[in-house]
């Protein structure tokens, strides 16, 4: 199997991480790539911001004051 290493592969894994557990190999590939890739670091930051925003949205929609 090909080792994921393009930004397309890595950002794909960063999105997949929201919906499934990555394998050890996938996690290592992400870590290694991100060390040297500014674009994917930015992309990762975006996925984390979105994760948190969705959580806050969910909360606000089910609370009385929302």
């Amino acid at each position: 199997m090909k080792i994921p290493n393009s930004c397309r592969d890595i950002s794909g894994l960063l999105l997949a991480r929201e919906d499934r557990t990555l394998s050890l190999g996938e996690r290592l590939a992400v870590r290694a790539h991100i060390l040297t890739c500014r674009a994917c670091r930015r992309f990762e930051k975006q996925t984390l911001i979105l994760r948190d925003a969705l959580r806050q949205w969910r909360q606000s929609r089910q609370q009385d004051q929302g």
Partner: peptide
């Protein structure tokens, strides 16, 4: 497979 633009 590279990003076209740096993500914001």
């Amino acid at each position: 497979g590279h990003f076209r633009e740096l993500p914001e």
